[in-house]
Design a protein around this nucleic acid. Sequence first.
RNA 1: GCCGAAGUGGCGGAAUUGGUAGACGCGCUGGAUUCAAAAUCCAGUGAUGGCAACAUCGUGCGGGUUCGAGCCCCGCCUUCGGUACCA
Length: 957
Amino acid sequence: MPFVCSYFQIQNRTLSRMEYKPGAIEAKIKAFWDKEQIYRVEADEDKPKYYVLDMFPYPSGSGLHVGHPLGYIASDIYARYKRLTGYNVLHPMGYDAFGLPAEQYAIQTGVHPAKSTAENIKRYREQLDNIGFSFDWSREVQTCDPAFYKWTQWIFMQLFNHYYDKDADKALPIDALTAKLAMEGNRGVNAVCDEETPAISAADWNGMSEKEQQLFLLHYRLTFPEESYVNWCPAMGTVLSNDEVKDGVSERGGYPVERKLMKQWSMRITAYADRLLYGLDHIDWPESLKEQQRNWIGRSQGASVKFPLAQDENRKIEVFTTRVDTIYGVSFMVLAPEHDWVAELTTPEQEEEVSQYVKWAGSRSEVERMAEVKQVTGAFTGSYCINPVNGEKVPIYIADYVLAGYGTGAVMAVPSGDQRDWSFASHFGLPIIPILDAQQDIGQQADATKDGRYINSGMINGLTYAEAVPKLIGWLEEKGLGRGKIQYRLRNAVFSRQRYWGEPVPAYWKDGVPYLIEESELPLLLPKVDKYLPTETGEPPLGRATDWKYKGEYEYELSTMPGWAGSSWYFYRYMDPGNEEAFASGEALKYWKSVDLYMGGSEHAVGHLLYSRFWNHFLFDLGLVPEREYAKKLINQGMIQGVIESIYLDKNSTAPRRFVSADRIGHYPDADWAMIPVHVDFVTDYGKAESYLNAEGIQQFLSWRAEYQGAEFVTNDQGQLVTHSEVGKMSKSKFNVINPDDVVAKYGADCFRMYEMFLGPIEQSKPWDIQGIDGVFKFLRRFYELFTDEHGQISLSTEPPTKEEYKVLHQAIQKVRQDVERFSFNTCVSAFMIAANELRKLKCNKRGILEPMAVLLAPFAPFLAEEIWQSLGNAGSVHRDGQYPELDESYLKEDSIDYPIAINGKTRATASFPADAEKAAIEKAAPELEAIQKWLEGKTIRKVIVVPKRMINIVVG
RNA sequence: GCCGAAGUGGCGGAAUUGGUAGACGCGCUGGAUUCAAAAUCCAGUGAUGGCAACAUCGUGCGGGUUCGAGCCCCGCCUUCGGUACCA
């Protein structure tokens, strides 16, 4: 039996003493909270605000498992703590309700995603309610609700209507740009735009047709459609963003992904690259997460250099390099196979080799590319360019180690300083030129050192790195052949999905030009479609909608927004969820400002958490939100993993199939066995090394998987079929999902909450293990029993507490306060246990001690605390009207302190000294203590170290 | 490879600033209670040696700094997470 001490067993006992019955208490209290709307919150200028936010869940069909609430419990404890200590706490919850699973389900069943999503949400809500969270549900948001996505669309429109002005270093209205263009063309415009934006004069602009002007502006708009290479996932029929692709396959589902040129809406997040990078220095987020964002943004400082073509010196190949100082070491140039100039640079002799290589490179999937990283491949185009610093002819190659999407898709290759260039040069027999006297062993491998002085390097010979770089850049700028440049790894974010279940893009197409719909026409509702599949002509599902034309005439944009659209700003909607005039009112934003504590999983490090910062910076530029960064502090909760239990099936066995106990297969090769996952409910001692299926478990397995009816089971001598256990994700397919409802039904929500906290530090991942929950249940029962008399009634003595009792209370207050502030909830639970144990030993039943103890416990065990508090005759709710106990340090004062006494650093004895003893007095008295004389015999005391209130160390020799 | 986090009893973990390592809980052992079991209560529980007092060893490994290191420094190993031809 996995649950040994279950609440049901306890409930069934008939004892005169009143037992702790969480089921009864929690149902009653829940009804009270609902009726009294305890957790409703409004802006209140008299109180400081505090905003505790959880990453809202996608309501999947499988419901919550025990891993989901971990973060919610922690943030709920903190929210309740803040509320009790005088803050006006905004603690909302909602649903990230657009998403692929509902759409896949719709494709299979025809059920509208809105319907299945609503059902899933209902289930989530029941599960969440079960755990006793203090969410203000009147502020719930759902991203798929038109009243919500109206504002997602609205923000999209603002992005379309703005461009990023580098001089102002912020987003400005596109009208400001058009005014400039009409006056002076784009010569004086210092804005973030596409690389290939042509230079135009005012006359050019003014001479353009409406269509031409609109197309030109797309080079600047912060969201815009463009032809670009995207991660196309044929199995899902949609494009994916870079962060949705892992190891060349889709993160969800693991389907292959290929590169495809498509017209897509894009978000010019690169405009904010620098601000997103430096903003990280001002927020209290986990260092590892900030580091991930920094890497993702990938700022590198270097230079852009132009290499003229040997055949036509007016045309130049531009490269980006972080080591412009190595330019004299360039022995060849490499273009990405997709580079625009490849065809024309290829000489007739090389034609065949190059076209074959281009074809081959294009056909390789991402997975293959990654698997063959070490292999050197490439082809010579037959053309040359000129190294601008020394006029030397440099052969031009193509190779797929150069990425089309980064920099200019071309690199200058310096084999002596770069390992990939070195490998390439060795393979193709190209020269490897040493450029620094400190370079070593370049016959064996590249040496990327910056030390030493330059050799073979023309104008920088004899200089150091620090001297060479500015000199070269200065020279290049003077000649117009290069400049210092900052390059980012971060790409503009593809914003289109060829899917149904997402926000419609509020745009339509007229003569090949995208236009926004009128603001008054928001929200643009998702139209009805007959099927949730692409059209016969390959259009996204929205193309199936009939009578769905803008003003009955123009084609709407048929792709929808990606999953991260709604989640990029939802935290503002909670501040003012019903507002029909704005995404949130100015007053609400002014009061609640931003998120004080954001709790969520680290898997969103570079997706949601980067995009939402980007949108926030943009909204900040428009003066629509009050802070540059929307979440001051962020904590990543760890994952609760499951245990995957499997049994060994002999692959070679036919009728009957044969399963063999894990301890009986040792001498057979692995290849002969298939691992069949079994439902963890059937397994005895699951999660332990010696977990097994007993006879009953085998029967359960057989009735669950009928196809193995009649199979043979080779058990060990104890009749056990030992299983294979491993830690992994909780998932439906592994049959290891633990539903919090079951745990709550057996132990109560308070116990579940405290147990999840007791498991360990909040940010750590750990496998779910029900072993040990008994300890927490025992604590709650004992805690409750402190309050009850021999008749089982809650009744406390009003006698004044003793000094000792006060000390226990105030020790607990100190420890819990401190640990809640540093989000160390596991040690809080220990502190409660210690206090309860001591009060039990003292047989304390004094109200002066126990009532504050109950309030202290309220954030952790909200039901039990409420029950006790009300039973003591208090009106209202402990969570709203309770007084959080104040620490009085005078109770913690010790008269004397037990000092450990160490001889040469090793503790040998302890001795008691008065708490106010002078350091000098202890130094004098310590060596004379009886207990340590034997350690001092025949030795000289060199030094006596006394750390007041801590320890004493006597150094002898 | 690079970046980040972490390695402490049989297990989850504690030790907040360099100051009694192993709090608290699980498990285990013994006892009380019981016809018996479960539950409950009490006691013990890092390893080794010893009847005991006690001693020696002990926080992944090897060095170092310090009166004193789980914590700081140097060099490794392992695990987990992220990233991956980024010029």
